[in-house]
């Protein structure tokens, strides 16, 4: 059982550091964003499980040959009120750390959910007062603002896509369609659930490279996935023009209207602070020079690796290893 804990610890280190760094530098995720998304989820989940698992297994190692008998022995020790010395201080420490980390992750996930939901609720409330539904479609609303803005606010049946006046003025009909399909793809593919999980993962362990890199990658990948959905209905040039117009209108150079018209910006343009530089440029680059998707065999390889990452920690936890 002690070997299982060493193996889990090694896996945890690999998934916390070299693996996410390598994946974040790889170029293939832009070619098959869906496959890359699966792999990132496995790295995060497998990493978390192996971190907790390593400490749990190591802490229980003196008590039995497998998780079940060791847990039973632990329950007996606690139940009969024996001193912690039976197990040894270091092992008690490892068990406590495993329990704390597990609780920390679950609580952060729940707290993040509550925080996000509260912000969404407040936003939706104001949106209902300030925006107007388009053509009797209650899930698409227009707000009177000069900046070209488009976004979606997830909320189950009450999900809305919001467009600004400024956007409607700047975009052609087909460009607008591209924006709408893009935003609805976020809602239909439930991207907010991924963002929630990875935002929680990042605030739970901000000091590990894996949570930062995963958060950033997931943010970029969902944009690619939504772009791909839009490309089923409009061509690359249309989508690219839509991106360019909106980016030019929201950026610091916003006053320069790409169509050569007058400025479409209000005076209250907030400063552009950007967390992940060049994400939009990468999106455009991808549309300018489309690369073929990974072959089926390559995708199968990545998916199998993802499945293994998820399967190994539970298997190691349950297998009697000595």
């Amino acid at each position: 059982m002690i070997w299982a804990s060493y193996f889990l610890a090694a896996l945890a280190v690999i998934l916390a550091w070299p693996a996410p760094i390598a994946l974040s530098r790889a170029r293939w995720p832009a070619r098959s964003p869906f496959t890359a998304m699966i792999l990132w989820q496995s790295i995060a989940l497998g990493g978390g499980l192996s971190m907790i698992g390593a400490m749990l297994v190591w802490g229980l190692a003196p008590l039995g040959d497998d998780l079940i008998s060791a847990t039973a022995a632990l329950v007996q020790i606690v139940g009969s009120g024996q001193s912690a010395d039976t197990l040894g201080v270091i092992h008690v420490f490892a068990l406590s750390a495993a329990a704390l980390l597990g609780m920390h992750l679950v609580f952060t996930l729940m707290l993040t959910f509550v925080r996000i939901e509260r912000q969404r609720h407040r936003h939706r409330d104001m949106l209902n007062l300030l925006s107007f539904p388009v053509d009797g479609n209650p899930s698409t609303r227009v707000i009177n603002h000069p900046s070209p803005v488009a976004y979606c606010l997830p909320g189950g049946a009450r999900s809305v896509t919001v467009l600004s006046d400024g956007l409607l003025q700047l975009l052609t009909r087909s460009e607008l369609e591209a924006v709408l399909i893009h935003e609805r793809a976020h809602l239909n593919q439930r991207h907010h659930l991924l963002l929630w999980a990875f935002a929680a993962w990042r605030s739970a362990i901000p000091w590990l490279p894996t949570s930062q890199l995963a958060h950033r990658a997931v943010n970029e990948l969902i944009e690619m996935l939504a772009d791909d959905e839009a490309l089923k209905s409009v061509d690359e040039t249309t989508l690219m023009r839509a991106i360019a117009v909106v980016a030019a209108g929201t950026g610091p150079q916003g006053a320069t209207d790409p169509r050569g018209g007058s400025s479409a910006l209000g005076p209250s343009q907030p400063e552009a602070i950007q967390e992940y530089p060049l994400a939009t440029a990468q999106r455009v680059q991808r549309l300018l020079t489309p690369q073929p998707a990974l072959s089926l065999a390559q995708q199968g390889g990545v998916l199998s690796a993802s499945a293994l990452l998820l399967a190994i920690p539970p298997l190691l936890l349950l297998m009697p290893l000595r």
Partner: peptide
């Protein structure tokens, strides 16, 4: 970005 998904995030000068 978890609360609402924008079509384009903020663009820095370099990126512009």
């Amino acid at each position: 970005e978890a609360v609402l998904a924008r079509f384009i995030g903020n663009v820095s000068e370099t990126e512009a």
